[in-house]
Each structure stands twice: as structure tokens, then as C-alpha cells.
């Protein structure tokens, strides 16, 4: 079994703007679902909080979720994780996430975020399949994986081999090397995740996976997050009628192009200026400084969710 990588030692989680945009978009979506009678506040959030717990802090503050479980695999940092626990309502469990999923309460609805930082592996797919089996109806599953080429090699044929080995029975043998071109890797991972999820749901009746999200973003490595609800036809109809269906980041079909989160590099002064014109018309560009039209559109997509960083002296 692969051990999860310990990326929190390499990256300071609080300084990843694209990831933060994604988190805020997710919060936005969950707030919309709350307005459509999904009682998100009563859901249990289970994530891999690491030592930063950013998602926990956000979900507790912005959504009022107070049943929270952070799962950490490495026993090496058990004390550090405990030390950084942000709220009393965040429970901790040191175990592989796959051991925890079957124990998630059958009488609660869940938001489960399998927030991996490595390319999709067999263990990840096993976890996803368990989520399909155990998450209660109405629960939301999010899966994040690294979408960069999975091996050192720069040959798509090797990447294809990697996925074929990791995915086993989920792998579609009809796919050619060309289907594993770098730009197509996120789509391949999403397909495999969905297949593992469907595999885990086999035998459960009257429910289906209702896609909601398919993000691609890049703070360092290119990452993808896909997600949706394990729900009934009634849930699907309720979501379709909600304001979520009009959000730019919403994806009800995972075969559609993903929502690419791009955070243009802007100064604080530029952001304040741009914000006055947001949301802007399609063809608008600023008069007072040079900014590419693509950057303007990218900013328009994310300005509501974009964090502002500043140095604090304390």
C-alpha cells in the first residue's frame, strides 16, 4: 500500500491561492445547496486536515459544520496534528483513510474529501470505491489528485502503463498511448475515479453519482478535484433547480471541460481597481494598465473567491 506523501512539509498550505479559490468555490456551492434544503450544517465533514486544517476552519466558519473528523496516516506527526487542531469539534483519527471510510456513521450525511497530493494510485481507487459503498445517500464526495505525469519518464506510453497497473480492472484497455498525452491526464484520472466510485456503488439501489465539480488548478503541480453527490433522482432534480446550475464552476457532466482555476498575478492596487468593474462585460479590459484579455476573464471567474495575502507583523 502506498504511503501518502507528506507534501505539507514541502509547501506552505496557506499560500496556495488557486487551491484556496477552489475551497471557496466549494463553500459557495455548499451554501447554495444549503438553500436548496440540503442540511449541510448537519453533515459530517471528513478530510485530511494535515497540520494546517484550512478546509476545516473554512467549513466550520462559513458553513457551520460542526461534526468534523480529520484523518492522518502518519504516526510521526500525531502530536503535531493534535497541537494544531483548530476547534474542539474537530476529531482526529490516526489511520489510513480507507480504514476509516467503512466506519463513517450510517445515520449521518457526509462530506468526504479525499485530498491526496500524489498521482492517482491503486490505493486511492480502493478508497474511492469504499466511499461509493459506504457514504450515505445525499453525501458529497470530493477527490483531489496530482494531475502531472505520474512517472519520471516523458513518454505517454509509460504513463499509460502506470495507470493500467494502478487501475487494474477499472482501466479501459481500448485507450491508446495518445489518450495519455499530458493534456489528457486529468480526464483519464477523473474517468478512473468515477469508475471506481460506480464499482463501489454496485448493489445499492435507487442512487447514482451526481457530478457537481471538476476543477483543474495549479499552484505548483497541476492538480484536479472532482466531486459530486451520491444521491437519488430527487436530489438530482433539486440540484438542477438550484442556483448551482448557473455557477461557472458547476459541472454536471464529468466529460465536459473542467473548470480551470487560474489566478492572474496582480498587485493589490490592481485588484482593487479591477474589482470596481467586476463582474465585467466579456470584452472589457482596463484602461489604466496593461492586462491581457485572458487574465481579465480568468480574474472575472475567481475574484469572488480569491484570497488576499498580506504580511502581518506580530
Amino acid at each position: 500500500m502506498n504511503r501518502p506523501t507528506e507534501s505539507y512539509l514541502k509547501v506552505h498550505y496557506e499560500l496556495r491561492p488557486a487551491k484556496q479559490v477552489e475551497r471557496r468555490m466549494l463553500v459557495d456551492a455548499l451554501q447554495i445547496l444549503s438553500l436548496s434544503d440540503f442540511q449541510i450544517r448537519d453533515y459530517q465533514y471528513t478530510g485530511m486536515g494535515s497540520i494546517y486544517f484550512i478546509d476545516f476552519i473554512l467549513f466550520h466558519r462559513a458553513l457551520g459544520v460542526s461534526k468534523m473528523l480529520s484523518v492522518e496516516y502518519s504516526t510521526n506527526v500525531a502530536k503535531r496534528v493534535e497541537f494544531n487542531r483548530p476547534f474542539k469539534c474537530v476529531n482526529l483519527q490516526i489511520a489510513p483513510i480507507g480504514d476509516v471510510i467503512p466506519t463513517l456513521s450510517g445515520s449521518l450525511k457526509h462530506i468526504l474529501w479525499l485530498d491526496y497530493d500524489a498521482p492517482l494510485s491503486a490505493t486511492h481507487l480502493q478508497d474511492v470505491s469504499l466511499a461509493g459503498t459506504y457514504l450515505t445517500t445525499g453525501s458529497i464526495l470530493l477527490v483531489t489528485v496530482d494531475a502531472e505525469p505520474p512517472t519520471e519518464s516523458d513518454e505517454p506510453a509509460d504513463w499509460r502503463n502506470y495507470f493500467s497497473e494502478q487501475a487494474g480492472e477499472y482501466f479501459d484497455a481500448k485507450l491508446k498511448n495518445g489518450d495519455f498525452a499530458q493534456s489528457k491526464l486529468p480526464a483519464r484520472s477523473v474517468e478512473l475515479i468515477e469508475r471506481a466510485l460506480q464499482g463501489g456503488m454496485v448493489g445499492r439501489t435507487n442512487i447514482d453519482f451526481i457530478p457537481l465539480f471538476n476543477f483543474v488548478y495549479q499552484d505548483g503541480h497541476k492538480m484536479l478535484t472532482m466531486g459530486g453527490m451520491i444521491g437519488t433522482q430527487e436530489d438530482r432534480d433539486r440540484i438542477a433547480k438550484s442556483a448551482l446550475s448557473r455557477c461557472t464552476y458547476y459541472r454536471d457532466d464529468l466529460k465536459l471541460e473542467p473548470c480551470v482555476i487560474t489566478v492572474p498575478r496582480l498587485t493589490r492596487k490592481e485588484r482593487q481597481y479591477l474589482d470596481q468593474f467586476m463582474p465585467c462585460e466579456d470584452r472589457w479590459i482596463p484602461d489604466d494598465f496593461e492586462l491581457k484579455h485572458d487574465d481579465v476573464l480568468a480574474y472575472r471567474d475567481i475574484y469572488r473567491y480569491c484570497p488576499a495575502y498580506a504580511e502581518l507583523f506580530f
Binding site: 489511520a95 489510513p96 480507507g98 480504514d99 471510510i101 470505491s129 459503498t133
Partner: peptide, 16 residues
């Protein structure tokens, strides 16, 4: 089919 999936879940911590 449902049991097979749940059997996997029950077995996972033992495999770990």
C-alpha cells in the same frame, strides 16, 4: 454485489 463491496470495507483494516 452490495455485500461484496461491504466485505471489502470490513476487511480493509485487517489488511492494513
Amino acid at each position: 454485489q452490495n455485500a461484496r463491496n461491504r466485505m471489502r470495507g470490513v476487511a480493509r483494516p485487517i489488511i492494513t
